[in-house]
Nucleic acid binder design. Structure first.
Length: 277
DNA sequence: CGGACAACCTGGCGGC
DNA sequence: TGCCGCCAGGTTGTCC
């Protein structure tokens, strides 16, 4: 479910119920979900520690405990929520990892496709160390972004998905940012003009900020672990709007495959043969 | 190193 | 209704 705005929404919603809770036990039924350390050590180490802070780095959820950090990556279908241990939710059918907390609460990790991973680390740098700058932070500067693009000849869209260039953009917001900037997803990264790079830098931030404001793209699964849909897809300009009129010019939105990912764009607003005038 | 692509998994949906 | 193929918001490993 996650791109940066969705993960940010989860993090914000986890703080209140999670901070101050102490881990009393751990359960899992899919070994691969636990990346490291091995499950026995994981359980032994995390038990007795209390959640002190919850934050986000790119698409990683960082839950800081007394001595370690519980790191969670939701990948495609992960959902992470705190609930009373006696309560049931639709997403529970895919829970493969769970922490029992004091006060009769549980932290549940639901993940139907089983791509998601949990880590327990004393040094998160071993997990997030290679990530590029946070797109909404000061570290994401136009100059550095331009330098990255200048030495890549691949299509711009896959470059936006490269987490070492900018950390947190996923398939939805890559399409959204490119549409807002009027840049075709297949344009070689090193062919973008300075003006286009500045524009793209801005639309990346705007698209992500809007996503956060709408509490994530499509699903408010934290507040509604029943899986009910949110309404944020109504705000998309390109993603998922194949065949529908471009909100800017009315031309039907086109869909192609770029770097193995479905890619939506307006052929009118995002021409492949850009004019330098 | 850059780039292309398979792999990891399951569920939901459109089409026949 | 039932079955089938296709698609999915992410990352990593492998090969050239």
């Amino acid at each position: 479910m996650p791109e940066l705005p969705e993960v940010e929404t989860v993090v914000r919603n986890l703080r209140e119920p999670l901070i101050g809770r102490c881990v009393e036990g751990m359960w899992y039924d899919w070994g691969k979900t636990i990346h490291s350390p091995a499950p026995e050590q994981f359980a032994a180490r995390i038990t007795g520690q209390t959640f002190r802070a919850v934050e986000r780095r790119a698409k990683y959820i960082l839950c800081h405990l007394d001595h370690d950090t519980l790191v969670v990556h939701l990948k495609m279908t992960g959902r992470l929520y705190v609930t009373n241990a006696t309560a049931t939710h639709d997403a529970d059918r895919w829970v493969h990892f769970r922490l029992d907390l004091d006060g009769g609460q549980q932290l549940r990790f639901s993940d139907s496709r089983k791509f998601g991973r949990v880590y327990l680390a004393s040094d998160i740098n071993t997990i997030t160390g290679k990530l590029g700058p946070e797109p909404l932070g000061d570290a994401f500067a136009v100059e550095g972004f331009a330098a990255q693009l200048a030495r890549r000849k691949a299509a711009i869209k896959p470059i936006l998905l490269d987490q070492t260039v900018v950390a947190g953009i996923g398939n939805i917001y890559a399409d959204e940012a490119l549409h807002r900037a009027g840049i075709h997803p297949l344009r070689p990264a090193n062919s973008l003009t300075p003006d286009e790079i500045t524009r793209l830098h801005g639309t990346i931030r705007a698209a992500l900020s809007d996503g956060i404001q709408h509490e994530g793209a499509s699903i408010n699964w934290y507040r509604k672990p029943d899986g009910s849909k949110g309404n944020s897809q109504d705000h998309f300009y390109a993603y998922g709007r194949t065949g529908q009129p471009c909100r800017t010019c009315g031309t039907p939105v086109n869909k192609i495959v770029v770097g193995q990912r479905g890619t939506h764009f307006c052929p009118q607003c995002q021409p492949i043969n850009h004019e330098t005038t």
